[in-house]
Design a protein around this nucleic acid. Sequence first.
RNA 1: GGUCACGUCGUCUAGUGGUUAGGACUCCUGGUUUUCAUCCAGGCAAUCGCGGGUUCGACUCCCGCCGUGAUCACCA
Length: 503
Amino acid sequence: MHIFKSTPIYEVLFTCAKYAILTDMKTVTRFAPSPTGYIHIGNLRSAIYPYLIAKQEQGTFILRIEDTDRARYVEGATELIEDTLKWIGLDWDEGPEKGGENGPYFQTQRQEIYIEWAKKLITAGRAYADPTPSEQIAKYREEASKNKQAFLYRNYRPDNTPEWEPGMPLRFKAEPKERKYHDEVFGDKVMLPETQDDIIIIKADGLPTYNFAHIVDDATMGVTHIFRGQEYLPSMGNYLAIYEALGLDTPKFVHLPHILAPSGNKKLGKRDGAKSAVDYRADGILPEAMLNFLACLGWNDGTEDELYSKEDLIKKFSIDRIQHAGARYDEQKLIWLNGQWIRRLFAEDAKALYERTKDFWPENNADDDYKFKIFSIIYDRLKTLGDLKTMTSYFFEDPTVDMSMIESNKALKKLSEHEIQDILRQAIDKLRSIEDWTADNLQNALNELLESTGHKPAELFGLIRLSVSFAPFSPALHDTLSVLGRERSLARLNAVITAYSRD
RNA sequence: GGUCACGUCGUCUAGUGGUUAGGACUCCUGGUUUUCAUCCAGGCAAUCGCGGGUUCGACUCCCGCCGUGAUCACCA
């Protein structure tokens, strides 16, 4: 190692020491949602990135439920969150169901811990019980707004505060000053004194606010990277002050830009119709595609690749390539990506992918063998698994003869009823002569038919295709016929002849 | 109003002083002997928010402005 030759010894020692410390420090990240409803795709990304970093560095990914807001608590939301994470493949190492050495993982079960840390602040003279009635605070706030100023409670800090006891909100006592920190995404930042206030850390109900709880939790759980939306950026002054007052080292801060709604410039939220992430599962979006899509919304590895598996992402993800600007959510790209993933997974293991289509077929009582055949000829035109429902119904039950579809067809509308019947009869004769009803033989027979009838492919194949399916689109004709089977195919062609004779 | 962040095709983005500003989605055209889709080939589409400056040369550096968003809760 020639670096030793040209480098002073103390620098070598320093490098070694630094390396030892780095290898000793285990990466711990977390996703900390509050159980107030489903997780929409705007939030999901802030679970993906910490997961990727944890896995990349052989660290720990924690799921922590921030359930201190009892008013907004929604029954069953925790299960919904867990379900979403499992679906997309983000298995947490510690958290609900799993347990772990840093539990409990529900904030309501950690109340004693917060109180204990809050008391440290009281003892240090850095927290006080707030005796001001809320109506009074509202007046202060109004005053600030009238003066076109940001509201700061500390401007109204009472001189004499009572001893803190249950039922009273507890406020942090700010020591406003310039506070510097480094954001992993946005770079070096300075928080001015006016960003720091006497914020409430314990509510009147005895539970902590996010502002306090997350700091205590992250510290006691050993979290090394905090990933969260950039809406927390303006609060950094307060957080830095609390870390300092508590004598805590700061973790790495990774603030993420917002995901924007499809229209307008607002961040994507439930009001913009942001669906629950798992609703996409019901639509037939693959978790692979969703993970790929969200990870690349606001991040890229600098190459022109588009398709990334979870393993690829773990290998390639890097915080320093996270975008600074918000990214617009574009469902079209998600759907395209999903189509790509369907094709890729089919190529890797067709049966395994088929097993995942169970919930998406139209009603039928066909066996797996038959359905797998259908899937094999139609998978490459699916955008979502949900398309199976609308694209395969004619494989299960005979379609109703709809002559208007033939009459409105560009190539077929010029044909007379007589010609139509004639073509169909010739087709039936030819197809009936096939001994072994395979796709290849069908292909040959159809080609021969093309020559013997002298019709254009658009007429001949178009008519047969419509007659057996009465669907706007279907797989290649010979494939469709081969899966449909001899009896069913011929019967459907006959049915069309009958329909025309009836008139 | 204060504070903070952001600003390259409609959208996601590459790009760190010299490029015909590249790729992807969408859209359009042609081909793959039916349709739809896939796939392939091609096309439309960005005066790099605006105005100054530095420089031989700026999307890239500096200053000012504008626009957009976030935040100012006993919500997270």
